[in-house]
Design a protein around this nucleic acid. Structure first.
Lengths: 158, 158
DNA sequence: TACATCTAACAACTCAGTTGCATCTAGCGC
DNA sequence: GCGCTAGATGCAACTGAGTTGTTAGATGTA
């Protein structure tokens, strides 16, 4: 990256680079292999406070860790499989991914809440869903998981 | 439809046919045109107690009212636009549609709950979401709508 | 270091949903 | 009842997210 095509310097140190070590440690804790794409994708998710699509991740890594889009899909799927991340179905038919809260690692996200901002479009993960919502299901319905989704304005756009 | 190609009689009167009149009346209440596809699609949705995808609708109508799939998409979108139906984003990246409760026609479905059955895969609409769930959002988040989604076993599969 | 196994990259594919455009028709005026 | 016109339908082609198959390459272990 030279200066001939750009007039002002791009941000040369993306936030996710500082999470590389943390990501490596988390991947080592799984029984699976430590690879560059896994580290980069996980570090990227760790650096965000909101859910990211496969495209967001690939875009964030394109300068320092260019990764094939199929690999991004597979790594994200693997992160969900090993319990490091979870996926969120958006309104635009796009999966978004977010790191699980490590403090809730035993039964991650069986009770879940998300907030999607109508202004910036980002989805945030809200933990601490109470075990008993004051909602009465019709008789005959036996729920096993609950997903609570809010829409409105996030703290950045308020 | 004669008996030469079939050995046993198919169900010749799909449930939606009995809703044709009701559907026509609802469409007349809008300012828009009364067309065969609109009537058929709306009658089909009216005959179901669960949410249907565009494919489900097209499939249900294929014998008596074969409709182009693009038209199904457009009619479903129109039904949402005029407030007769609403759409639900599923976990399989497929939109599903369901009639709005006419008794809640003023502010339809700003507070909404759905139940997706892990066994039969169908999505049901649960009305009567309380105005105040006992859930505290982090400060800075200003919600305008809530969508509560349960997963488990429905009353048919329990 | 050699090897077996798992992973990444590439290409091609599937499928839900969209767009463009020509044709048709519901509803209105006459 | 007839003709006109805005708006709806049907067809074909497209888009874009996500998946699958296969081969080459990287990883961890003996």
């Amino acid at each position: 990256m030279t200066s001939n095509a750009k007039t002002k310097a791009p941000p040369e140190t993306p936030a996710y680079l500082s999470r590389i070590g943390e990501a490596e440690a988390a991947i080592r804790r799984t029984a699976d292999r430590l690879t560059q794409p896994r580290v980069a994708v996980l570090a990227c998710l760790m650096s965000l406070d909101h859910a990211a699509s496969h495209f967001d991740v690939a875009q964030a890594l394109v300068n320092h860790h260019p990764i094939d889009r199929v690999t991004v899909y597979r790594v994200l799927e693997w992160l969900v499989e090993v319990g490091i991340a979870h996926r969120i179905a958006g309104d635009d038919r796009v999966w978004r991914f977010m790191i699980n809260d490590p403090t809730a690692s035993i039964a991650p996200h069986h009770q879940h809440a998300h907030f999607t901002c109508n202004s910036c479009g980002q989805t945030f993960c809200l933990d601490d869903v109470p075990n008993k919502l004051n909602f009465r299901l019709p008789s005959g319905f036996k729920p096993s998981t609950v997903d609570l989704k809010f829409r409105g304005r996030c703290l950045h756009c308020a």
